[in-house]
Design a protein around this nucleic acid. Structure first.
Length: 494
RNA sequence: GGCCCCAUCGUCUAUCGGUUAGGACGCCACCCUUUCAAGGUGGAGAGACGGGUUCGAUUCCCGUUGGGGCUACCA
């Protein structure tokens, strides 16, 4: 009883993979990473990447979740081939497969009432025993079964687990084996006629001709059941790769307590999809060398099953931020712009229409700010001084750079005068003029630049001061200097 | 409880028997510098424990411990 590691068919034909989330919550980062690995492998090998929504749990499935999955995948740039498959639409096939299993004797009807089962389980657990369904409990003579059937008694269908050992060569773990005696005769069809997860998955994967199943390693113990089902249905067993889970900082399964876990949250916090993919890929996979920052194409080129990790990875938001900063600074500007507009709207700094109306100017500003930001939302926040009519002076900036108000007022008004007299408004002449002024006043350049920065932005931190002057433009810069001088003088009096 | 998976700095990881155990995030210091970032340099920081195998184990095997998953007429 053993499974060949890679059937010849899958070795020569491009693989077919799938991502099969259940729409019972938002697209989780763990799910997103599984999808990413599947997508990467499919795209890299020239195979197909399919999407299946496992909506058989009617109680918990919602359209909203389904939409979140579509949106999340779209945002990450994980496109899929062929039509989306909704598992719930395949009920008839699931039932037909169960009928096949019943007919071949690979499965049997169990008329034991659910309540009775529950009672036995509670009793066993109360006695500290593990409850395992005993096939004999359902044993009926053909006459008895016919009678129950005729009477319309409800029954569930159980798979008859054969003797032996079920094993497979996992692409990340190597050989994994389960003695069949540890697997109980699991239910494949409920008494209401609906299929149970393991049956639906196998039935759909066979119908979708999936040759490679890559999923979270929480499915390892489902795998032997599914392999048994493939065999009983006479279908080829696909290749399996069980990738490690993603945990929170406390080592536990990632959940709400750990902060944002939905990819939509990151999208709305100003993260870039390429950074998210890069970061997620590095959780449970590595290139083998020291490469970490990889733009989409490089990730696609370098991804390999060999680099897959066995150990669960802890999600570190700080590293995600750093990664995003790297992408924000390195991506072609055209690729980051589409993500910048929504951030400015989210932060209430400006509107897309307004920004697009002065595109050249805006791109210059983004270019200046992006190396200093870790997210596009942070970038938008840093851009505030370039959009407001009057700057607010930060209290710390004032106490630090405008300590000696009257002296600073003098310096700033001299600065204003010097700048106003310039024939052109460009960095080199401004710098020459202001450095000359500093020398005349017998002070260091910083004694001019720092107070000037506060006058222009209200902050102690900003891009290079001459870039700020250029972005602000001559009129606004001179106005702000004048306002600062006025403020300083009135403040001294007050 | 039973079964299965896993185990290198706080975190992500490299190492495929012989290394001063390397890199990255974060942290600290310094450099660059008009500020902030970015960048550069340096620092602190790891093989869970116990047995084997071997001339030699982080690496291979066993056990212990720890963590995780599954154990539903959930997915």
């Amino acid at each position: 009883m053993s499974v060949s590691p890679a059937p010849d068919a899958t070795a020569t034909t491009p693989p077919r993979l799938r991502f099969a989330p259940s729409p019972t919550g938002f697209l989780h980062v763990g799910g997103a990473r599984t999808a990413l690995f599947n997508w990467l492998y499919a795209r890299q090998t020239g195979g197909q990447f399919l999407l299946r929504i496992e909506d058989t749990d009617r109680q918990r499935s919602t359209d909203e979740s389904t939409r979140a999955i579509f949106e999340g995948l779209a945002w990450l740039g994980l496109d899929y081939d062929e039509e989306v498959v909704f598992q719930g639409a395949n009920l008839a096939r699931h039932q037909a497969d169960v009928a096949t299993l019943l007919a071949s004797g690979a499965a049997y009807r169990d008329f034991t009432p659910a309540a009775e089962l529950e009672r036995m389980r509670a009793e066993a657990e109360g006695a500290g025993q593990a409850f395992r369904f005993d096939r004999e409990l359902a044993a009926l003579t053909p006459e008895q079964e016919a009678a129950k059937l005729a009477a319309g008694a409800p029954f569930a269908v159980r798979f008859k687990v054969p003797d032996g050992v079920t094993d497979w060569v996992d692409a990340v773990h190597g050989r994994i084996a389960f003695p069949n005696k540890d697997i109980e005769d699991f239910i494949i069809l409920r008494s209401d006629g609906t299929p149970v997860y393991n049956l639906a998955v196998v039935s759909d994967d066979i119908a979708m001709r999936i040759t490679f199943v890559m999923r979270g390693d929480d499915h390892i113990s489902n795998t032997p059941k599914q392999i048994l089902l493939y065999r009983a249905l006479g279908a080829p067993v696909p290749r399996f790769a069980h990738v490690p889970m993603i945990h929170g900082t406390d080592g536990k399964k990632l959940s709400k307590r750990h902060g944002a876990t939905a990819v939509g949250d990151y999208q709305h916090e100003g993260l870039l999809p390429s950074a998210m993919c890069n970061f997620l890929a590095l959780l449970g996979w590595s290139t083998g060398d020291d490469t970490e920052v990889m733009l989409r194409d490089e990730l696609l080129a370098r991804f390999s099953l060999d680099g897959l990790q066995k150990k669960a990875a802890v999600f570190d938001p700080q590293k995600l931020d750093w990664m995003n900063g790297q992408h924000l600074a390195k991506l072609p500007l055209d690729e980051v712009m589409p993500h910048v507009y929504p951030a400015f709207e989210r932060q209430g700094v400006s509107t897309r229409a307004e920004l697009e109306s002065r595109d050249t100017w805006f791109r210059t500003l983004v270019e200046l700010l992006r190396v200093r930001s870790r997210t596009v939302d942070e970038l938008a926040r840093q851009a505030v001084p370039y959009f407001v009519d009057t700057v607010e002076y930060d209290a710390d900036a004032v106490s630090k750079q405008w300590r000696d108000a009257s002296a600073v007022a003098e310096i700033l008004s001299a600065t204003r005068e010097r700048l106003a007299s310039l024939p052109t408004w460009e960095p080199t002449s401004m710098e020459t003029a202001l450095r000359a002024l500093a020398e005349e006043l017998g002070i260091s350049g910083g004694k001019i630049f720092q107070p000037l920065r506060v006058a222009l932005t209200g902050q102690t931190a900003s891009p290079g001061i001459f870039d700020v002057l250029v972005v602000l433009g001559r009129d606004r810069s001179l106005d702000r200097l004048e306002a600062a001088v006025r403020w300083l003088k009135s403040d001294v009096v007050a």
